[in-house]
Simulated scan of single mutants.
Amino acid sequence: MPTLLGDKIRKLRQGKRFSLDQLAELADTSKSYLWELENRDTANPTMDKVAKIAAVLGVTPEFLLDNQQTELSETVADRAFFRKYQKLPAETKQKIQDILKVIQEPDKKSE
């Protein structure tokens, strides 16, 4: 019987249409390790592995490990995005900020 962690990983992986192989490659781990996490009740992953898997799946490690929180919320996705954003180079951050300015501008064509 899989753990809640395994269920969350499987659900998120399938939602992104990743195979075990694809997620393993993106998270720098092995397919067999992911299979164990998804299917065994004795999963005991390292925080490093959980963080890598969470980053690829677009969630926080805390969400994956939290046995109380079973549904993905907008807040979890926002936190995961912000963590990725914080690690970006300044030039890339500026590009994202510029894109947001354009998106948030009122539609001038309709005036």
Rank of each mutant, 00 (worst) to 15 (best):
D28T: 08
D28V: 09
T29G: 03
T29V: 11
T29C: 14
T29F: 05
T29Q: 05
T29L: 05
S30I: 09
K31S: 10
K31E: 08
K31M: 10
K31G: 03
K31R: 15
S32T: 15
S32D: 11
S32W: 07
S32A: 14
Y33T: 14
Y33A: 14
L34K: 05
L34R: 03
L34M: 08
W35D: 08
E36R: 15
E36K: 15
E36W: 13
E36I: 06
L37K: 05
E38P: 05
E38C: 03
E38D: 00
N39W: 08
N39F: 06
N39T: 12
N39K: 11
R40I: 03
D41S: 14
D41P: 06
T42G: 06
A43N: 04
N44G: 09
N44K: 15
P45F: 03
P45Q: 08
P45C: 10
T46R: 12
T46F: 08
M47G: 08
M47D: 11
M47N: 14
M47Y: 11
D48G: 14
D48P: 00
K49T: 15
K49E: 04
K49P: 02
V50E: 00
V50C: 05
V50S: 04
V50F: 04
V50Q: 02
A51P: 00
A51D: 10
K52E: 06
K52L: 12
I53S: 02
I53R: 02
A54S: 06
A55T: 04
A55S: 12
V56S: 05
V56K: 02
L57C: 01
G58P: 02
G58Q: 04
G58K: 03
G58I: 04
G58V: 02
V59Y: 03
T60G: 00
T60H: 01
F63E: 01
F63C: 00
L64M: 07
L64Q: 01
N67R: 14
Q68A: 11
T70Y: 10
T70M: 13
T70K: 15
E71W: 06
L72A: 06
S73H: 09
S73L: 10
S73Y: 03
S73K: 10
E74R: 09
E74F: 08
T75Y: 14
T75S: 13
V76A: 08
V76Q: 07
V76L: 04
A77N: 09
A77H: 12
A77W: 06
A77K: 15
R79V: 06
A80V: 07
A80G: 06
F81N: 08
F81Q: 06
F81E: 08
F81G: 03
F82K: 13
F82H: 11
F82N: 10
F82R: 14
R83G: 04
K84L: 13
K84E: 13
